[in-house]
């Protein structure tokens, strides 16, 4: 039996097995790549080659009608998890100098006394995105816009790096120990509200989203209301408007109070 060669044209098993396998493949390939594409009612192919390529999965250029363009400024920031990378000491230093003009509202160490956002230890990507949006006009604020338009690209990177570098200090109004409201830990699935913590820290972070612990309640409330009404539209593809417009005024209040009362989470050992 060892003398019997398996891979031989004289072995009937070999011929049969290979023949059946190849035949099945060819049959299914002809049906899948030629017969079925042509059987589609709403599709026309320029040639048989076009049909085969489509069915085989060769990417094709779409011929789409002109899209409806926004009549307002949308955010043009490309947000990725690896944006901004590791800041240099020099960048942080430049940021520190630039940050002096921000201290009036955002506090000398990035913790505000004036219901402006605390920036100390905030994610660089979150700060950078807002600065870019103020510059482009995707987000509008009477105080911030004039500041932001004067900043260069490098200025925005440096400022983000500096504030991200600062230690996370507790804000002025913590009344800790409140249980987290349901909307924060569970959201409201049927209203398409995911848990706040799944993007804004505590559970997980989504790139470009800020962490919120210790922010002023008034600020959080105003922003949620602005998202809900559509007054603020710089959230990419409505990701925040989708949530805010589903929230009740009571829930908005609850969330704002809760986050304002929380101390910042200590930073993890290695930062990105």
């Amino acid at each position: 039996m060892s003398a019997e060669s398996v891979f031989s044209l004289r072995n009937r098993w070999f011929i049969t097995a290979v023949g059946i396998t190849a035949g099945l493949f060819l049959l299914t390939a002809v049906v899948g790549l030629i017969v079925l594409p042509y059987a589609q009612r709403d599709v026309t192919f320029t040639s048989i080659w076009d049909a085969i390529c489509s069915a085989a999965g060769v990417p094709q250029v779409r011929s789409s009608a002109a899209p409806v363009q926004p009549d307002f400024k949308v955010s043009t920031v490309v947000v990725t998890a690896s944006m901004l990378g590791q800041p240099s000491q020099e960048s942080i230093g430049r940021g520190a100098t630039l940050a002096q003009q921000c201290a009036i509202c955002h506090g000398p160490v990035g913790v505000s006394r004036a219901d402006s956002p605390n920036l100390a230890g905030q994610y660089a990507s979150a700060i950078y995105k807002q600065l870019k949006d103020f510059t482009s006009g995707a987000r509008v604020n009477a105080i911030m816009t004039p500041f932001a338009v004067s900043l260069s690209e490098q200025d925005m990177v440096d400022l983000s790096a500096y504030y991200a570098y600062l230690p996370r200090l507790p804000a002025y109004h913590p009344e800790q120990g409140k249980p987290a409201p349901r909307i924060v830990v569970n959201g409201a699935p049927m209203r398409n509200i995911a848990a706040c913590g799944s993007c804004h820290g505590a559970l997980d972070n989504k790139a470009g989203s800020p962490w919120l612990e210790g922010q002023s309640a008034a600020y959080i409330r105003t922003q949620l209301q602005a998202f809900a009404s559509g007054a603020r539209r710089n959230d990419i593809s409505q990701q925040m408007r989708n949530i805010a417009r589903q929230m009740t005024p009571e829930e908005i209040d609850e969330v704002a109070q809760y986050y304002a009362s929380q101390p910042p989470q200590s930073r993890r050992a290695s930062s990105e």
Binding site: L24, F25, G32, P37, S54, A55, G57
Partner: peptide, 14 residues
């Protein structure tokens, strides 16, 4: 969306 319909059929048959 990244696989062509033809190969989906071939795999379905097998």
């Amino acid at each position: 969306p990244q696989v062509g319909a033809g190969f989906k059929f071939i795999h379905s048959a097998f």
